[in-house]
């Protein structure tokens, strides 16, 4: 599923976000594009603005300044039906899974179809057979076809995140945004979830923007790595040309001035990865 002639799926221009009337600067002048089909990983410390940035991509948050364009839609100004139409095209994976624990896996996955449906739904049986079958197929793709009617809160964390991935897939998205998808999981489940996530996204030729804590994990999966520090872009490189040590500079407390860090990283980085 290619985007309008294979152009940029995400276009960020000078995005700034302040909370509490300028007291806290979460994002500061972030500018980059994500071409179609790219697998971009955001790295950075907690509080560096990764989540905030991702939440701008489907309008869960709006910038204080700058432009956010996703799939050709001006997210900053989109409201109502236009915003919902955009959200339908953006599958969002949350750190905390955000499933409804009381509901079955299948019903949680079916929520991914809400953007396509007009009326409110309550209960698996209010969705058409075709949709239920489609939801079951997505569950199958994440390896959970054997338990569609198990309550979501009885699953392990890794399984819950896979249900959430299936929910995002049912949206038939063009862009997948994943906010620390494995931060609350043990290493083994983490690897499993990451494998599933990147396998299905590759199968569907989806563009992915994913934030991660773990540099090794990031380098293993990403086409391109962008580093944030105190809300500023301090790294933007092709993943193949990036060593783990270089990536780690994002996490080091070098000096007080982010600009200095930017200088060092970019000096070693060479051409930023527009693949």
């Amino acid at each position: 599923m290619m985007h309008d002639g294979g152009g940029h799926v995400v276009r960020l221009r000078g995005v700034g976000k302040e909370f509490g009337a300028g007291r806290v600067v979460a994002l500061d002048d972030v500018t980059f594009d994500v071409p179609s089909g790219q697998l971009l990983v955001l790295i950075g410390l907690s509080g560096s603005g990764k989540s905030t940035l991702l939440r701008h991509l489907n309008g869960l948050q709006r910038p204080t300044r700058g432009d956010v364009e996703v799939l050709g839609v001006d997210v900053v100004r989109a409201r109502g039906a236009a915003l919902r139409a955009l959200r339908r095209d953006v599958g969002f994976i949350f750190q905390g899974f955000n499933l409804v624990g009381r509901l079955t896996c299948l019903e949680n996955v079916l929520a991914g179809a809400l953007g396509r449906l007009r009326l409110p739904r309550y209960g698996v049986l209010t969705y058409s057979r075709a949709l239920r079958r489609e939801a079951l197929e997505q569950l199958d793709r994440v390896g959970l076809a054997d338990r569609p009617f198990q309550r979501a809160d009885t699953l392990s964390g890794g399984q819950q995140q896979r249900v959430a991935i299936a929910r995002a897939l049912l949206q038939r998205p063009r862009l997948v945004v994943a906010d620390e998808p494995v931060a609350s999981l043990d290493p083994e489940s983490s690897a499993q979830v990451m494998d599933v996530l990147f396998r299905v996204c590759a199968e569907d030729h989806l563009t992915v923007v994913c934030s991660l804590h773990q540099v090794e994990l990031a380098l293993g999966y990403a086409h391109r790595v962008v580093g944030l520090r105190d809300g500023r872009q301090v790294l933007d490189r092709d993943a193949r040309a990036l060593s783990s040590a270089q990536a780690m500079t994002v996490y080091q407390r070098l000096g007080a001035d982010p600009a200095e860090v930017t200088g060092r990283v970019l000096a070693t980085a060479g051409n930023a990865g527009s693949a």
């Binding site: 959200r87 095209d89 409804v100 019903e107 929520a111 179809a113 809400l114 449906l117 409110p120 949206q171």
Partner: peptide
């Protein structure tokens, strides 16, 4: 849970759909 509401809204669901699919099941 606010997360579940946000997740429903992120699928492109409308206000009423968010309520029936994520809030209502939680308060049943």
């Amino acid at each position: 849970d606010r997360g579940a509401r946000e997740a429903a809204a992120s699928t492109g669901a409308g206000r009423l759909q968010v309520i029936t699919s994520s809030v209502l099941p939680q308060i049943v």
